[in-house]
Nucleic acid binder design. Sequence first.
DNA 1: CCTTGACGCATCGGATCACTAGGCATAGCA
DNA 2: TGCTATGCCTAGTGATCCGATGCGTCAAGG
Lengths: 107, 107
Amino acid sequence: MNGETLKGHLDLLLLAALRGNPAHGYAVAETLRARSDGDLDLPEGTLYPALHRLQRSGLVTSKWSESTGRRRRIYQLTAKGARAFSARHDEWRAFARVVRSVVEATP
Amino acid sequence: MNGETLKGHLDLLLLAALRGNPAHGYAVAETLRARSDGDLDLPEGTLYPALHRLQRSGLVTSKWSESTGRRRRIYQLTAKGARAFSARHDEWRAFARVVRSVVEATP
DNA sequence: CCTTGACGCATCGGATCACTAGGCATAGCA
DNA sequence: TGCTATGCCTAGTGATCCGATGCGTCAAGG
């Protein structure tokens, strides 16, 4: 999975991973790895800044969890985040459709 | 069509537009606009630097055409460019599949 | 006990990239 | 003579992903 390939679509994936499934960063990465059969393996330098960005935008909230003695930050989708997910999903479908029609046009 | 959305996938679209269809920059933009029903309207500041990049990478060649009295640079896919198209196409399909399986997973 | 590896979070700097804004020039039409 | 479409180019800006690095906890094996 190339770097530039993911660019601009990471938020959609993170929001998808958090849909109805509050989780901490590490678990989000595991979810994405699992759902993609290992194809999508986010480096930490990608994951955490992106989650912070989502929080700054109000799409997720977070709280510390100390249950296991191990410090974790649990992220949860806000209502705005859920709406953003739908919007991003629509944009993705539109984009994928455009790419298909451009690429699969008979030359 | 957002900027970040396109990021990393522009080359694929340009290579697709030039597949078996040598053309100058302006015509490439028209092709993309047509194939996407107007959804994809590349600014010139996006189009030309990208074409130059493809040329620097050896994926296309170009020559000036003065046929109409109007100066145009005709771009043509190289063999390497054709291979790159296939590779990028495969990458795109893989990426689209990953996004689908991540996004459409039942939460 | 102590090392190793998995877990877990954070940030800085680098590199890439699409886009805005600006410039330049020709052709055709009103 | 303007105006519009055609046609090309580039410097600078902002957004973004990623590699590197640092810090800290916990369980297992030697």
